[in-house]
């Protein structure tokens, strides 16, 4: 499958400490974790490479301090990476001049922050219009655009409130509206919902899905919460100690975790919504798959949806491809283990 990479990150390093550049040079650009520890440097991001595809939701996960924020701050150049390259639509962002960078931020990128980052002295309207204001758009137009965004996130009628007069969820809606006001191509969200309590968080996730269905942006989204990740992600990247341990679809992650660390994350995943029938079926041994007639399930259906059918059936349920050819069988034992087991899926 050919996909457009909107952003390409190549061998990004971000090291904090007294003199990161000199340090990198001393180790020929490849310091190990021990080297870092020995000299008291922090390797927030270490040799990370990945692409962000056009139109996808890429979720980055990892424990606190694993470098999630740092990596997107390197992409947005809020931090300058110590080494590596970030390409945005074929252009090396790390070589962009301050002016170019300002232009890119004004038109191409939007970002939502964990603690909202609203300007306390401005009303909702003026906060949302802020990115347009700094572009010197005239007042009428920017307020019109800002009002559209405010309506979009469902805050119509609150435009003259100050941030302190809003609840956390509402404040984050303002943050979202602001980041969308410039109609960015790519949208970064750094734990946008983790400062909110669970009920509001669920509500905001639904809101987010609704927005994305309308807007279809390219999204890089950081979260702590695997449940949230599986609900939203096209692909998930797991970070550990500054490295990207695995980057793949949620299903692959559940099926083939790269290591114990990833497996730990995947353990609590809602398998019923991630794993598909094909992953747990007993493969048919037939050389040429026969056509199936009667009750069967499609290979890419999530197991949550077929569970009832499989469990109610006395015989193993056939699994077919889109053309109706037999691929394998799922029986009660397999599906029960996949749904309720804690260890391996099959």
């Amino acid at each position: 499958m050919a996909v457009d990479a909107q952003i390409k990150c190549r061998n990004i390093w971000k090291i904090f400490g007294a003199d990161p550049e000199a340090f990198m040079q001393r180790y020929n650009g490849k310091p190990t974790a021990d080297d870092l520890a020995q000299e008291g440097y922090i390797g927030a991001v270490r040799d990370v490479s990945f692409d962000v595809h056009k139109g996808e939701i890429l979720i980055i996960m990892g424990l606190s301090g694993s470098g999630k924020s740092t990596i997107i701050r390197c992409i947005t150049r809020l931090n300058d990476p110590t080494a590596g390259a970030v390409e945005y639509e074929g252009r090396n962002l790390l070589k962009a001049t301050p002016q170019e960078l300002i232009e890119i931020r004004r038109h191409k990128m939007g970002m939502v922050f964990q603690s909202f980052g609203l300007l306390p002295h401005r009303t909702v309207l003026s906060n949302v219009a802020f990115p347009l204001e700094v572009q010197n758009l005239d007042q009428l137009e920017r307020e019109k655009r800002a009002m559209e965004m405010i309506e979009l996130v469902g805050l119509g009628g609150r435009e003259n409130y100050f941030p302190r007069e809003l609840s956390g969820g509402q404040q984050q809606r303002v943050g979202i509206a602001r980041s969308l006001a410039v109609e960015p191509d790519i949208w970064f969200l750094d734990e946008p919902f983790s400062a909110l309590d669970p009920l509001i968080r669920a509500e905001m996730q639904d809101e987010f899905i609704r927005l994305q269905q309308m807007l279809k942006k390219t999204i890089v989204f950081i979260t702590h919460d695997f449940e949230e990740a599986t609900k939203l992600a096209d692909r998930i990247g797991i970070m550990k100690d500054g490295q990207m341990v695995q980057l793949c679809t949620p299903e692959e992650m559940v099926l083939n975790p790269a290591d114990e660390y990833v497996a730990e994350f995947a353990r609590n995943a809602p398998r019923d919504r991630i794993v598909s029938a094909a992953a747990i079926m007993k493969k048919s041994t037939a050389k040429t798959p026969p056509r199936v007639s009667g009750a069967s399930v499609l290979a890419n259906t999530k197991i949550g949806e077929i569970a009832e059918q499989v469990i109610n059936s006395e015989v193993p349920t056939p699994v077919t491809d889109a053309a109706g050819m037999l691929l394998g069988h799922v029986d009660r034992e397999r599906i029960t283990k996949a749904l309720f087991g804690k260890g391996d899926i099959v």
Partner: peptide, 20 residues
């Protein structure tokens, strides 16, 4: 966060200082 949101909004350094 406030400062970075200003930078991400595309402020020039001067705008960042006086407006954020």
């Amino acid at each position: 966060d406030v400062e970075e949101s200003g930078r991400m909004s595309g402020c020039t350094p001067r705008q960042l200082l006086w407006k954020v």
